[in-house]
Computed example of a mutant assay.
Amino acid sequence: MDSDDEIEINFVETILTSCYKYSQPDTLIFDYSRIDEFGNALDSNYGHGSIYRQKDLCTSEQILTALSKGEIPTTAWSFVTKRSVIEKHDLLFSVGKKFEDNNFTPKVFYFSKNIVVISLRLYRYRKRSGSIMSNHPEKFFSDDAIFVTYDLLDFYDQYKIRELGAVVGNLVMTMLVSFPDSKKLYNELNPIRKKVFKDYISIEKRHTKRIKKYVKMYVFSSYVGYKLYRLVKGKHWK
């Protein structure tokens, strides 16, 4: 948990009930709500995808696909997993790096073969104006963004499944959209985008609404230079 966030009062009970119902799944994913500094509800558009309506156990491929489409958050507070999954595969956060959830969570999902998705919003994420992520210039994050993206690419290279490639592609586009003024980030992530292009497109082509944004911008940014990408980025992403 983040130190200023909250969980619903029935969090532990709900998790344990699902564990017993589904015979000890590897991982349980749950929805979340967004609150302000005073605990008031805020609108939230990230995550909350159709995957939360799933009633049966999910496979790692299903969850990675949902992750690549932004249907579930990448954040480490959005799921509970067995300690044995973490220890068996030596899964660690990248020490001292921002965005460390982005190269940690997909690995957990990959090694989780039986996954339960809980539709309830059990976690309360607090959005503060004074947070680290909102009070530093983009250059403060670029090196960390590059590091976690390449680390996840290394993981994809090791296991070579399409769903992981799509997650890498989604991470690349998220970083580019989040930091459109970073030429260094654009140049460093170009080789990754090209490498996972087919995997990313094969997943996204079935999701019509996001084609208008992610896929078009993905293709566009692959074949033009940084200056043109930055120039038209705002128009395409509104």
Results as ranks from 00 to 15, higher is better:
Lys183Thr: 00
Glu163Lys: 11
Val224Thr: 13
Leu122Val: 15
Lys107Pro: 01
Lys198Thr: 14
Leu91Met: 10
Glu100Thr: 13
Gly96Asp: 11
Val148Phe: 04
Arg121Thr: 13
Lys97Tyr: 02
Phe220Pro: 05
Val117Leu: 11
Phe93His: 08
Ser131Ile: 05
Arg230Leu: 07
Lys194Pro: 01
Tyr226Gly: 08
Val117Ile: 15
Arg128His: 01
Asn102Tyr: 09
Phe104Gly: 01
Ile192His: 05
Arg230Glu: 05
Phe197Pro: 07
Ile132Cys: 02
Leu92Thr: 02
Leu176Cys: 13
Asn114Ser: 13
His136Val: 06
Ile115Glu: 07
Asp144His: 00
Asp144Phe: 00
Tyr186Pro: 13
Leu164Asn: 05
Ser142Lys: 04
Val108His: 02
Leu92Glu: 15
Tyr200Val: 03
Leu91Arg: 00
Ala166Pro: 07
Glu188Pro: 05
Glu204Asp: 07
Asp101Gln: 09
Val219His: 13
Glu188Asn: 14
Asn103Cys: 13
Val117Glu: 00
Phe99Cys: 04
Asn190Trp: 12
Phe197Lys: 15
Ser221Ala: 11
Ser202Phe: 06
Met175Asp: 09
Ile132His: 03
Ile203Leu: 08
Glu163Val: 00
Val167Met: 08
Gly96Pro: 00
Lys107Gly: 02
Leu91Trp: 01
Tyr125Asn: 11
Phe109Cys: 04
Pro191Tyr: 15
Phe109Tyr: 11
Pro180Gly: 07
Leu228Tyr: 15
Arg162His: 12
Ser119Cys: 09
Ser119Trp: 04
Thr105His: 03
Leu152Gln: 00
Asn135Trp: 04
Ser221Gly: 14
Tyr200Phe: 14
Lys184Ala: 11
Arg162Ile: 06
Tyr186Glu: 10
Ser222Arg: 12
Val108Ile: 14
Val196Met: 04
Leu120His: 15
Leu228Gly: 03
Tyr218Phe: 14
Ile118Lys: 14
Ser131His: 04
Lys183Arg: 15
Leu185Met: 12
Asp199Pro: 05
Asp144Pro: 01
Lys194Glu: 10
Lys139His: 15
Asp151Leu: 10
Asp144Val: 00
Arg230Phe: 08
Met133His: 02
Phe109Gly: 11
Ser202Val: 03
Pro191Val: 12
Gly165Arg: 08
Val167Gly: 04
Leu91Thr: 03
Thr149His: 08
Ser131Phe: 07
Glu163Tyr: 06
Lys97Asp: 01
Met175Gln: 12
Lys216Met: 05
Leu164Ser: 03
Lys194Val: 09
Leu153Glu: 07
Leu92Ser: 03
Thr208Asp: 13
Lys227Cys: 15
Asp151Gly: 02
Ile161Leu: 08
Asn187Ala: 07
Tyr110Cys: 04
Ala166Val: 04
Asp199Gln: 13
Phe141Tyr: 15
Leu120Asn: 15
Arg121Asp: 14
Ser112Asn: 10
Val116Leu: 13
Asn114Ile: 11
Glu138His: 10
Glu100Pro: 05
Thr174Asn: 14
Phe197Thr: 12
Val148Asn: 01
Ile192Glu: 02
Asp199Thr: 02
His136Ser: 08
Met175Lys: 11
Phe104Leu: 06
Phe147Leu: 09
Ile132Gln: 02
Tyr214Glu: 09
Val117Thr: 14
Asn190Ile: 15
Thr208Met: 04
Arg162Leu: 12
Val117Trp: 01
Val215Leu: 11
Lys184Thr: 14
Leu92Ile: 03
Asp143Trp: 10
Val177Leu: 14
